[in-house]
């Protein structure tokens, strides 16, 4: 047998293997909103990492009067302790982003594994896990936060756990549905027929297939986690020892920044939270769109085919 049923073009012609960087760039080019979100995110990540090196003042350093108005020395004014708001904002970026990422990662790990196990094995395991998920889904978030914070105390670690506890259910349901689809693919059946272990099939065939979705969802979840962190801190259930944006809003609020008319103590962290959430959302939804072509509706646009004259060299057919 030396017969080939289609002409083979040389490999380098059919595939100029795009580097990861290049495929990221082309993704950003196709989705301008993702590019904007990405730039904002990079900016905040930069601040979170290097902020302490260029923050004008210390995190706990009183540098002026209580609720001092914005000035050239303190562009965003001072807070209730006379601390520079711009510096606080810079320090807070790190905590907020860490909590956001860590919470989302916890949710992804817990929800992702439960979703994969549930979807892959199905049957009784699936039933048991999905029942459990349902119970968590109906637990009121607020009550859960208060209970965890009052039993285990107020700390950064506990906030991350709370975020994980609240959001893993979404991830689990979504991933389970996807895994159920992948599980029925013939190449998974083939691996089973070959005698591959479940671990092998899950790690070699299932996870790589759902990884992009997992990633896109995690990005979206970071936004939710940051939002939740802000809410938790605002309710006074956050870690009292670190400065997060939520904590800034909370202290400003509880120390009557509003009645002092000190808008600069509340607005900057609020805007920062909104910006970061928006940026994560922009990137996440664009990634989700490009993974899920069914969401595109352009083909519904009603346009008709065109007419054109016959080609000059009309073959006699």
């Amino acid at each position: 047998m030396s017969f080939i049923d289609a002409p083979m073009t040389p490999l380098d012609e059919v595939r100029k293997s795009p580097s990861r960087l290049r495929s990221l760039l082309s993704f950003l080019r196709k989705h301008p909103q993702a590019a904007i979100g990405f730039v904002i995110l990079m900016l905040f990540v930069f601040i979170a990492i290097f902020g302490p090196y260029f923050a004008p003042y210390g995190e706990r350093e009183q540098v002026g009067p209580i609720f001092g108005t914005p000035s050239s020395a303190h562009p965003l004014g001072l807070d209730d302790g006379g601390i520079d708001v711009l510096s606080l904002l810079i320090y807070g970026a790190r905590v907020t982003l860490i909590v956001g990422f860590a919470g989302a990662v916890v949710a992804m790990l817990v929800g992702g594994s439960i979703g994969i196990i549930s979807g892959y094995f199905g049957g009784k395991i699936d039933n048991a896990l999905m029942r459990t998920t349902d119970y968590f889904l109906v637990l009121p978030d607020l009550v859960l936060m208060i209970v965890v914070a009052s039993i285990w105390g107020r700390s950064l670690r506990n906030i991350i756990i709370i975020i994980g506890l609240i959001y893993w259910t979404f991830m689990a349901r979504l991933i389970r549905a996807q895994v159920k689809v992948v599980r029925e693919r013939a190449y998974v059946k083939r691996a089973q027929a070959l005698g591959a272990t479940h671990t092998r099939i899950i790690f070699r065939h299932v996870i790589p297939q759902i990884a992009p979705l997992l990633l896109a969802q995690t990005v979206l979840m970071v936004a939710l986690a940051i939002f939740l962190e802000t809410a938790i801190s605002f309710l006074g259930l956050g870690d009292p020892s670190v400065a997060s944006w939520g904590k800034m809003i909370e202290t400003a609020f509880s120390r009557s920044a509003i009645s002092y008319g000190a808008w600069w103590a509340i607005a900057p962290p609020g805007i920062a939270v909104a910006l970061v959430i928006m940026a994560f959302n922009m990137v996440g939804t664009a990634a989700e769109d490009s993974l899920n072509p069914r969401l595109r509706v352009s083909h519904l646009a009603r346009r008709h085919f065109r007419l054109r004259p016959l080609p000059d060299k009309e073959p006699p057919k």
């Binding site: 085919f305 054109r308 080609p311």
Partner: peptide
């Protein structure tokens, strides 16, 4: 049937 998509053009 005249059911070509908008990316199509026809002659004849």
């Amino acid at each position: 049937m005249g059911l070509l998509p908008p990316t199509a053009s026809a002659a004849g």
